[in-house]
């Protein structure tokens, strides 16, 4: 880690200094489980604990790091059923419908996405629960209260987690275009 690695660094989105990339390569895998984890990271990077904490603060502020936190495995915690509710809402109404759904506490994720061949739906909402019946009951209540019952609709339950690892940066930066 160079002393001057951060001077004159680009601060626009998408550009990491060399020091920041080295730090992300460690913290994306996990924080050391030792009393002073940031000091241990600093030793591995050849810098100070203060500098590591400062860089983390910076990366969180820039939203490069969304969270520095524990990621629970919901299935191991008993929240075993996950329903992806989808609707085909007219484009002229979709933003208003999405904003309304986004206020429902039972919905953890809600997005507008494009339609595709064999896929007529443009609103996606995730609902979790302890059983399929519980998830379906919640989705039906939401659909009713939000006035979405007349639109084409489906619920896709997850039956297996095949991969869950989160995004990773690479050891080397992306080549400039």
């Amino acid at each position: 880690m160079s002393e001057t690695g951060d001077t004159g660094q680009e601060t626009r989105n998408g550009v990491l200094s060399e020091d920041e990339r080295a730090l992300l390569l460690i913290v994306q895998e996990g924080l050391p489980l030792v009393p002073a984890p940031y000091r241990e990271i600093a030793e591995r990077l050849g810098t100070s604990e203060e500098r590591v904490l400062e860089m983390l603060q910076e990366l969180l502020q820039r939203r490069v790091i969304k969270r520095l936190a524990a990621v629970p495995n919901h299935y191991a915690l008993g929240v075993t059923h996950n329903g992806m509710a989808v609707w085909d809402v007219p484009d002229s109404l979709v933003s208003a419908v999405g904003r309304k759904l986004g206020r429902w506490p039972e919905i953890t994720h809600c997005y507008r996405r494009p339609r595709a061949p064999g896929w007529p739906y443009n609103v996606f909402a995730m609902v979790h629960g302890m059983s399929r019946a519980e998830v379906l009951t919640r989705i039906q209540a939401i659909s009713h209260e939000a006035g979405l019952e007349t639109y084409p609709h489906d619920v896709l339950f997850s039956t297996r987690i095949l991969k869950k690892q989160g995004m990773r940066v690479r050891a080397r930066p992306v080549a400039a275009p």
Partner: peptide, 29 residues
């Protein structure tokens, strides 16, 4: 520290670390 090690080993936690944001890194998701 002991509990975190056990929760990670047992798979109750998939990770204790940084969750990154592809668009803010200039990428996509």
């Amino acid at each position: 520290i002991g509990r975190l090690r056990r929760l990670l080993d047992a798979g109750a936690l998939t990770r204790l670390g940084a969750i990154l944001n592809a668009p803010q890194l200039g990428g996509e998701r």
